[in-house]
Amino acid sequence: MTLFIEKIKLHHLKMSLNDPFSTSFGTFQEKEFFITEMIDGSGKRGFGESVAFTSPWYSEETVQTNLHIMTDFLIPILKNNEIHHPDEVFDLFHPIRRNNMAKAALEGAVWDLYAKQKNISLAEALGGKRKAIDVGISLGIEPTVNDLLRKIEHYVQEGYKRIKIKIKPGYDVDVLKEVRCVFPETKLMADANSSYTLNDIDHLRKLDDLDLMMIEQPLAHDDIIDHAKLQAAMTTPICLDESIHSLEDARKAIELGSCKIINIKIGRVGGLTESIRIHDYCKEKGIDVWCGGMLEAGVGRAHNIALTTLSQFTLPGDTAGSSRYWKKDIIEPEVVVENGVINVPTKPGIGYEVDEEALEEFTLSTKEFNI
């Protein structure tokens, strides 16, 4: 079966978050991104979403570099090659180094279109079995500890399965101690976004007393060596995020003992195909994985849900409900969390319909490419 893609559209959107979201990188109030759309000869439409930010805080990629790479390199590759299965897209894109978020934005739309052509859900196309997934919530750095405690209380009452708290030097151990005192039984994790060095090892070891699920990416964004030294000195599991861009990165980190958990983000690793490969390797090695979030709108959120149906996603991910971030999302129905659980949609493809009015409302511009 050949995926006959006749047209590709790149919709450039800007949406405003309900509340500012602060990390050690900075504070976000608006999110710009691309919705990628692929249309076949029968009118079926597959959708993907880019996750890069406007500035290169999280990685070297940005919204504008995504546009450049997709337009000038990746779409011509799709135009000049016949595709029978979405797995082939990862290999076709391989000669283009890095730029994983640009690759994932297009590859995701191919996967969605493929699933719709096969009349199966995206989760089923990926090999997922779960009918529902457990999810947690990610909370940014708040102005005061009391503000943070109020938010945690709200989401604990809503039933989220774990709480992730962003930390940075000066906003870490003491804050988490207060949180743990108020919420002694809640599953907590800390996300450092590469804010520390090995010089902070004695300070970070204080986290071992707080019964955290994990500390995510405490050291440099491109490091696996120092993380191995830190993990050997701590009982709290280290989870790697920014350091893992490929199956090969995951293999090296696991062999070195750099982590006990890996966060798989579709955009960071270059798409769903590589996400599955990393998942399968981690399952073989007994490494827990979970699906991280990048402040996605509904399309990207739907891709995360489908991926999380794979068996080694043993820990709650960051895929909160649409209303956590957006007053209005671009899909119908919006993603809803009930008691910390999202029911996996069963309709073909991502399982949600794109809200055409919302898409038009938030779109700044659209580029079309005939394939």
Rank of each mutant, 00 (worst) to 15 (best):
M1G: 06
L3N: 10
F4N: 15
K7M: 02
L10Q: 01
H11Q: 08
N18H: 08
F21S: 05
G26P: 14
F28A: 10
E32S: 08
E37S: 03
M38A: 04
G43R: 08
F47D: 02
G48I: 06
P56D: 13
W57I: 12
W57V: 14
T62D: 02
T62S: 04
V63N: 03
V63R: 06
Q64F: 10
Q64N: 15
H68A: 12
M70N: 11
D72H: 14
L74M: 02
L74F: 03
P76Y: 01
L78K: 00
K79E: 01
E82G: 00
H84E: 07
P86K: 00
E88T: 00
F90N: 12
K103M: 09
L106N: 03
G108A: 04
K118D: 08
A125F: 05
G128E: 02
R130N: 14
K131T: 15
I137P: 00
G140W: 14
V145A: 13
N146F: 07
N146L: 11
N146D: 13
D147Q: 08
L149Q: 11
I152H: 03
E153D: 13
H154F: 04
Y155M: 00
V156Q: 04
V156P: 00
G159I: 00
K166D: 09
I167R: 06
I167A: 02
G170F: 05
D172P: 00
D172E: 10
C181L: 15
T186Q: 14
M189F: 06
S194E: 10
R205C: 11
L212H: 07
Q217Y: 10
P218R: 06
K229F: 12
A232S: 13
A233C: 07
P237L: 04
C239I: 07
S258Q: 07
G270T: 09
I276D: 05
K285E: 12
W290D: 06
C291L: 13
V299W: 12
L310P: 14
L315I: 15
G317C: 13
S323Y: 09
K328Q: 15
E332I: 15
E334M: 13
E338N: 14
N339T: 02
N339P: 03
G340D: 06
V344Y: 01
P345W: 14
K347I: 02
Y352I: 05
V354M: 09
V354Q: 04
E356G: 08
E360C: 06
S365R: 10
